[in-house]
């Protein structure tokens, strides 16, 4: 189920960023993905900004009950929310799958396309293709993906033009700062 960071199809573009100091922990997770203690699944309908963000709030509240420290909670909530909004704002809809382990969380976002033609470009702060309706709500700064990169211990995006997008991130609960 939690086939974490599994090998990409060769025709798909991939972006991977691991926070320095976390390489070994991320590699350990990839090589031996454990069974998740709890998994949550929430749909993300296209352009539904009434419900967008609920999945992220739910995950944050669950982690809060589990006693995760507030700074880690903030990083999980911000990363999940930015990714959730991106699926609602830029894709035809998708889902959010959260896998919670004793010492970390792995969140996966799958959507129905249209994909990201150039992921490196999408990662550039300020780059945005958000439409007028999305901008009116306060989105479209082009800072969502950079924000996830900054807050997650590992971020991977796999996509292709006219295909689906998968974004996943890992955050460890023991902050090393």
């Amino acid at each position: 189920m939690a086939r974490a960071f599994a090998a990409a199809r060769s025709d798909m573009a991939e972006y991977l960023h691991i926070q320095s100091g976390r390489e070994q922990a991320v590699r350990d997770f990839i090589e031996k993905p454990p069974e998740a203690d709890v998994s949550l699944d929430s749909p993300i309908p296209e352009k539904d900004f009434n419900s967008a963000g609920k999945g992220s709030a739910e995950v944050k509240n669950l982690l809060k009950r589990l006693g995760v420290n507030p700074e880690v909670l903030r990083r999980v909530a911000v990363s999940a929310y930015e990714a959730e909004i991106n699926v609602a704002a830029h894709s035809q809809g998708g889902e959010m799958l959260s896998h919670i382990y004793p010492d970390m969380i792995h969140v996966v976002f799958n959507d129905e396309g249209p994909g990201i033609a150039d992921i490196e470009q999408a990662m550039v702060p300020g780059y945005s293709t958000a439409d007028e309706m999305v901008r009116e709500l306060g989105f479209g700064a082009g800072l969502g993906l950079p924000n996830i990169k900054k807050n997650a211990d590992a971020l991977r995006i796999r996509s292709e033009a006219n295909g689906k997008t998968q974004l996943e991130f890992l955050i460890f609960f023991n902050s090393d700062e």
Binding site: F49, A52, G53, K54, S56, A57, K60, R74, L137, G138
Partner: peptide, 17 residues
């Protein structure tokens, strides 16, 4: 302080303090 009045502004307070 913001000029945004949609529900996502309130939703933000679920994520950050």
């Amino acid at each position: 302080l913001t000029g945004l009045t949609n529900n996502q502004v309130i939703r933000l307070s679920d994520m950050i303090d």
